[in-house]
Amino acid sequence: MRAVSTAETATTTHPWAVQAEALKVRAGRHLAVDGLDLRLATGVHGLLGPNGAGKTTLMRALATVLKPAGGRLTVLGRPVDGRADLRPARRALGYLPQHFGYYPRFTVREFVTYMAWLKEMPKVAIPAATQRAIDRVGLSAKADARLRTLSGGMLRRAGVAQAIVNDPQLLLMDEPTVGLDPEQRLDLRELLRDLGTDACVLVSTHLVEDVVAACTEVVLVNEGRLVWQGAPAALAAHGDDGHAGDSPAERGYSALLRRHRAAAAR
């Protein structure tokens, strides 16, 4: 592996961490993201949408795992569609997939170190960055435990640690709260808010309450398209007692989805 210069790993700022124009992405033969326009800046963004809305496919495209089938996609100021060089953007990315695979025999420290190495972090910085990431997710006591011995919540936190080990400028987390107990969810929300002060964090979740509590902006998608984007408080303003949901934000979510479906049916 070639050495990476300091300039290549230096933090750079971009007005938009993510810019998508008429983005199309296939999941197998199905066009799961179909003409999506989206701009994301620094902050914590909650990606909401029903099952099959295209959230996971969008996350994979933003993580440069899936190649866009159409439209334009820019991540951290660099195009990541077509035959673009993906490495500079990938060095500044953090990604936690929905189905987070791992090597059972690795310890938490080995796993996070391995991911830091794959992210081409400077060798001398890896041990300290690994320890810091493990500390931030509250796994210090389990740092040398093998992954196969951890509970579901601990594994999820190990996944978060590998995602943040390189201090990413764009952090993508697909269902990060799955398997966490209520206390761990609160800790994760606090961590997300902290990370979102100087990075763009996109969190995909089914839980509207997580979005309201931790995010500065809501991104609502359905059938592969952007339905609505705005502040959590504004989401609540769209609903009323006639819509399904236990909270104002959930009722706003239901109302917006219903309107989008009705408009699509016409």
């Binding site: 440069t64 997939p97 090597y103 081409e120």
Partner: peptide, 11 residues
Amino acid sequence: PAWELIAGTPS
């Protein structure tokens, strides 16, 4: 098992 994680790294 870590295919998707690795696929998004610069390496």
